[in-house]
Design a protein around this nucleic acid. Sequence first.
DNA 1: AATTGGGTAGAGCGTTCGTTCTAGAGCTGT
DNA 2: ACAGCTCTAGAACGAACGCTCTACCCAATT
Lengths: 195, 195
Amino acid sequence: MQTSTRDRIVVATARLLQRQGYVGTGIKQIAKESQATLGSIYHFFPGGKEAVAVAAIRHSGQEFAALLKDSLDSEPEPAEAVLSCTRELAAGLKESGWVDGCPVAAAALETLGADSELQQACADALNGWERLVLDKLLGCGFPADDARELATTVISAIEGAEVTAQVNRSEEPLLAAGRQLARLIRSYGVETARR
Amino acid sequence: MQTSTRDRIVVATARLLQRQGYVGTGIKQIAKESQATLGSIYHFFPGGKEAVAVAAIRHSGQEFAALLKDSLDSEPEPAEAVLSCTRELAAGLKESGWVDGCPVAAAALETLGADSELQQACADALNGWERLVLDKLLGCGFPADDARELATTVISAIEGAEVTAQVNRSEEPLLAAGRQLARLIRSYGVETARR
DNA sequence: AATTGGGTAGAGCGTTCGTTCTAGAGCTGT
DNA sequence: ACAGCTCTAGAACGAACGCTCTACCCAATT
């Protein structure tokens, strides 16, 4: 057995949350999908369903952060980097049959009212991604205020574009958002000095 | 009795879907909230839960379209119009305790896999809103290609910014998106001739 | 060899789900 | 007065929910 049971549970839950949200995902489905049993799940996560979901969201947050970081680092210019990022997301989304969108959006929207630990985990994930974009912009010489506002806008727009792309089963919204975001970033006319 | 039972069901369901999504909303909760009974619900909507949800999403789609149209028409310049729109959304979101976000996003994300009538209703709503923005841009003299790509980007960005704002319980993401979208729109340098 | 305890296995608890069903209330046309 | 209709009312069904519980496996420790 290569991967530990705990990891299998987390990974399977992450995918299920991404596709069907929190309420739509049952503990027994997690058990089946991760090849674990109820006993194992409650052994590793005495907190029950919510605890599993929190771990899964944190996992998804880090996983996507790694992907985002790679994509941002692959291009020196931030405008180009964002563009390449949306292209990657569009390709992945299409490949999954428009099913694997933002890994936290569905769960986040369902648990908004009840400031739970789960909701906090979603917020953390989103803010972590935003910080990656912010750092990229700062590293390219953007003024702090501009960079901050741009970073939140970039993450928000990508988030929304992914939803739109999923609903319309088309890469176009994501690609359009990428092009427009690149244009927006370039409009600040910061010549990237370093790197 | 002012409003008909059917309308009460649709309106109550729309609000519940907006806040807790499709799976998170139960038929019995709809009955309680709308002051109807199970009998009434199944009388007006023989299709069951999904039929109620479809009607509710369509209702939400039109309602938000009206709000969007008013907001867009309140300003001659499209950049200003989008900005004012995000301000309105931010205010409403805050007022609701960060709970009343996009009325279709939650439901849309949960039902992505199963190309149901519900998913189609969500897509229709989104596309209807996009069309309003598109018409505004076209009416202000934007070239068709630019207008189309801008419209999808505007809707996507607002959508995503609303989610980000909800998760962070802050108006800032929505306001930042509004400012940046306005900047983006202005960057096309189209002087609005007519009107 | 015996014991311990982390991990596995799943039957079963109480509750809630969406739906169906029967019964009746309130009105209209004859 | 009566039949025929729309709409209301909620009990009851099977299925699925999250969770608890006991029993068991097996490698490491004594």
